[in-house]
Design a protein around this nucleic acid. Structure first.
Lengths: 342, 342
DNA sequence: GTGAAAGCGCTAACAT
DNA sequence: ATGTTAGCGCTTTCAC
């Protein structure tokens, strides 16, 4: 009683393979009687269509790849969930690829389509910029996530990082904060994501005619909270006076909160902190974290929409979509007292 | 210049398909000259083997499914990362399936293998117990994660929850805690996972000849921190005196910390808290969270080992593997002063 | 409405 | 060491 094939069902039901196939696919024009007869044979034999064979025959896999740096980074795991849900709603399944920011792994992602594994790719690159992506990919449907300023042949979805960072700074300025730091510039980060946030931070200060102090820009060597905590600790020890802090992401903010707490600095009384990504990490931090929140659901839906169009044959030039964001105000950087009392 | 096939390469190189296949697979017995000639044709044409076709021909997909309740639950996202890494080391790719604890979705997982999508399944069931899994799965290689006491035809990997919970309780008792609560029993949870942790909690108290107070067992309606915070808040409002708390997972612990903090209860001075899973959520909580830590790496490696054996044809009865765990002591439940001064 | 047969692209016997 | 060829299981024109 091994593998039951379409042909077996056809034989038992006494019909052709085509008819069985029609029943399996709910093809409209089959007589009820035929349908019943075939269905019975299917149930009887416990027939399951072989997806691999179907894929070979149709050339469609019904799968998309989601290539992200780390599966367990809160932002990416939360985003993955939305992507998975949106994909599922559109009849796609998701193959999650962890690139660990490794260039070779990132390159390999774009080959998956060519190897017939997936129909398209949603890709958050870290080690290559969009020009390289454009050069590498040939006719693979790709939607890029994250920051990129170059128009390329792939589609892009992102939030307006510059504006978002400006809003974060403005929020702190409205509370009377005057020494606002930015954490953190990551060494070796070539994506421009941090650049845009940093740019927005500076623009926010310039807009308010505040001085720019380069020492207020904190650098880190990687994306971990440990590194972020170290950077903040050293800044405090160096006597860097600051009363506000805009973080590149919630993980950094989490490390920062830890460093501030252990140094005896009160948040938000002494230093107000703004995170980025609105992850669960920040929602339950102490104090709870004010954070710039990309609309992840909209991000996922937009990415799938664009990718779907490409898979369905759209060949046009790369499209850019800006999805909305908001500032979720929590304890670490509450609404200004002035606003409250007004 | 569309799809380049194996046959095209063979034609250009002026050899047979078999020879091309040999080169592609690094088959040893090919003359260097042949290899060079073929390789040149491959590069020239930009040939990429079609994985789907290969899968059809070999019957192996090189993929395994990982079916978990939620992609973005910290425990599962961290576990996923280890699974993905171990799988990758063994030449497998991982298809992550989010079941959302939905029975239909869980059932569908077991069909994937039969449909030829994956070679095997690593499955953390929530809505079905292992008997049901055993009944459903036919000859699908499956490794079960999470708690289950029944010997079945599938393999199991888990930690010893009862012992782990006992250790958590013992840790609190050693600090002189006398009113230790358990959070939380989840309504509708049929997996026995919580049961075992609860059992260990009770056993730990009994071992120390402490009284069991049913009011110290806190119930919740779902797995969110919100629910957990609610349960703790209500317990405090009801005047339930407690000085220690063992949580079913770090998410619950996170919610508990929040509720305790907002109620003005100090941790660990007034209430010491032990979490479960050792996730990033707890590592950066305030105070940092003492947590029972399953060895996730070992868990992943063991699961892949067992699954690999099944895929390679092992047919024996279900095996049970207990992997190690430890108690990671942090601020929320530090080492007893008595121990420190000894 | 239903049947017959030619692929989809690759692998693995078997042959040379 | 390399070539030939029959599948793998399903889809899909194209007749009937």
């Amino acid at each position: 009683m091994r593998k039951v094939r379409l042909a077996d069902v056809a034989a038992v039901a006494g019909v052709s393979m085509k008819t069985v196939s029609n029943v399996v696919h709910d093809y409209p024009h089959v007589t009820p009687e035929m349908r019943r007869k075939v269905q019975q044979a299917i149930d009887e034999l416990g027939y399951k269509p072989n997806l691999t064979a179907r894929r070979l025959a149709t050339g469609k896999t019904g799968m998309i790849a989601l290539a992200i740096p780390e599966i367990d980074h809160p932002y990416f795991s939360e985003l993955s969930r939305y992507i998975a849900e949106e994909a599922s709603a559109r009849g796609y399944r998701v193959l999650v690829e962890q690139t660990l920011s490794n260039p070779a792994a990132e390159r390999a992602v774009l080959n998956d389509r060519e190897a017939g594994v997936v129909d398209g790719v949603i890709f958050h690159p870290v080690s290559m910029n969009s020009m390289e992506v454009a050069r590498l990919k040939r006719d693979v449907p790709v939607v890029l996530l994250g920051e990129s300023t170059m128009p390329v042949t792939a589609d892009h979805v992102m939030i307006d990082n510059v504006v978002a960072a400006q809003e974060g700074v403005a929020h702190l300025l409205a509370q009377g904060r005057r020494r606002i730091a930015f954490l953190g510039v990551v060494e070796g980060d070539v994506t421009g994501s941090t650049d845009q946030r940093l740019l927005g931070y500076q623009q926010g200060l310039v807009d308010a005619r505040m001085p720019l102090d380069p020492r207020l820009i904190l650098s880190v060597t990687d994306f971990t909270p440990e590194e972020s905590a170290r950077a903040v600790r050293e800044a405090l020890e160096a006597g860097l006076g600051l009363d506000g802090l805009v973080c590149r992401d919630d993980r950094f903010a989490t490390g920062a909160l830890y460093a501030l707490r252990t140094a005896g600095v009160r948040v938000p009384e002494d230093v107000a902190v703004v995170g980025w990504d609105d992850t669960e990490l920040g929602r339950w931090a102490t104090p709870t974290l004010t954070s710039i929140a990309p609309d992840k659901r909209e991000l996922a839906a937009t990415a799938l929409q664009l990718l779907g169009e490409r898979i369905d044959g759209y060949q046009g030039i790369g499209r850019h979509r800006i999805v909305s964001h908001s500032l979720i105000v929590r304890e670490s950087a509450p609404v200004a007292a002035a606003v409250l009392s007004s």
